[in-house]
Deep mutational scan, measured.
Amino acid sequence: GSPGIQSFLPPGWEMRIAPNGRPFFIDHNTKTTTWEDPRLK
């Protein structure tokens, strides 16, 4: 199987799917959430 997208996120980050189907990202380091992919910064 191919590695999940989770493995490509920075340490402490998690990806979830919102009720509307959009992915969002949780930064457990700062306890914040964002719509922006942290890998694109």
Rank of each mutant, 00 (worst) to 15 (best):
I5P: 13
T30W: 03
W13R: 00
R22A: 08
P3D: 14
P10T: 02
R22S: 08
K41T: 15
P38W: 00
P3A: 13
F24E: 11
P38T: 01
L9C: 05
T32N: 08
K41V: 14
K41A: 15
G1F: 12
D27A: 01
E14G: 03
M15C: 14
L9T: 01
G21L: 03
T30P: 00
P10H: 03
R39N: 07
M15E: 07
P11I: 07
L9D: 01
I26V: 10
G21M: 02
K31M: 13
R39W: 06
F25W: 13
T34A: 04
T33L: 13
P38E: 01
Q6F: 02
D37S: 02
G4H: 12
R22N: 09
G21P: 11
L40D: 12
I5M: 13
T33D: 03
Q6E: 15
G1I: 13
N29S: 08
N29W: 08
S7D: 15
K31Q: 13
P23T: 08
L9E: 01
T34V: 06
D37K: 02
T33G: 08
W35V: 05
P3Y: 06
E14L: 02
P10D: 04
S7R: 10
L9K: 01
E14F: 03
G21K: 06
R16V: 12
P38I: 03
H28I: 09
S2G: 14
S7C: 14
I26S: 02
M15A: 06
H28K: 06
F8H: 15
T33M: 15
P19Y: 07
F8V: 14
S7A: 14
D27L: 01
D37W: 04
R16Y: 08
T33H: 09
A18P: 02
K41G: 15
P3H: 13
N20K: 02
G4Y: 03
K31I: 05
R16K: 11
D27N: 11
I17E: 05
N29K: 09
E14M: 03
A18K: 04
T30G: 08
G1V: 14
G12I: 01
R16H: 08
I17F: 12
P10F: 05
S7F: 09
P3E: 15
P11F: 08
K31Y: 07
F25N: 00
F8M: 09
W13K: 00
H28C: 14
H28F: 08
R39K: 03
I26Q: 03
T33Y: 12
F8N: 15
W13Q: 00
T32Q: 09
T34S: 09
T34I: 06
K31D: 11
S7W: 07
I17Y: 13
Q6I: 13
T32S: 09
M15R: 06
N29E: 07
R39G: 06
G1L: 11
P11L: 08
R16P: 00
P3L: 14
I26E: 06
I5T: 14
E36T: 08
F24H: 08
A18C: 15
A18M: 10
F25T: 00
N20P: 02
T32I: 09
K31P: 04
I5D: 14
W35N: 06
G1H: 13
T30K: 07
P19C: 15
T33Q: 10
D27G: 00
W35F: 10
G21S: 03
E36S: 06
K41E: 13
R39L: 05
R16M: 09
R22L: 13
P3V: 13
M15F: 04
N29Y: 09
E14K: 02
W35K: 04
P23S: 08
P3G: 12
F24N: 06
T32R: 10
F25L: 01
P23W: 13
P10R: 05
I5V: 12
K41Q: 15
G21Q: 03
R16T: 06
F25G: 00
R22D: 14
T34K: 03
N20Q: 02
R39M: 06
F25Q: 00
R39Q: 03
F24R: 07
N20G: 09
M15H: 02
L40V: 12
P11Y: 08
R16D: 04
D37P: 09
N29D: 06
R22Y: 11
S2W: 07
P11H: 08
F24A: 07
H28L: 10
P23D: 07
S2V: 11
L9W: 05
P10K: 06
H28Y: 09
G4Q: 13
G21R: 03
G1N: 13
Q6G: 14
W13T: 00
W35T: 06
T32H: 08
L9Q: 01
G1S: 13
P11W: 06
P11M: 08
P19Q: 10
T34H: 11
E36V: 10
Q6R: 10
S2Y: 09
F8L: 12
E36Y: 12
I5Y: 14
G4R: 11
D27K: 01
K41P: 15
S7K: 11
P10I: 03
L9V: 02
P23F: 10
P3F: 09
P11V: 07
Q6K: 12
N29R: 07
R16S: 07
W35I: 05
I26H: 05
T30I: 02
G21I: 00
P38H: 01
T30L: 06
D27F: 04
P23G: 05
F25Y: 12
D37H: 04
N20I: 02
S2R: 13
D27Q: 03
R22Q: 14
S7L: 10
I5E: 15
F25R: 00
T32V: 09
I26M: 06
P10Y: 06
R22I: 13
A18T: 08
D37M: 02
M15W: 03
S2T: 14
I26D: 02
P10M: 04
T30R: 07
P11T: 07
E14Y: 03
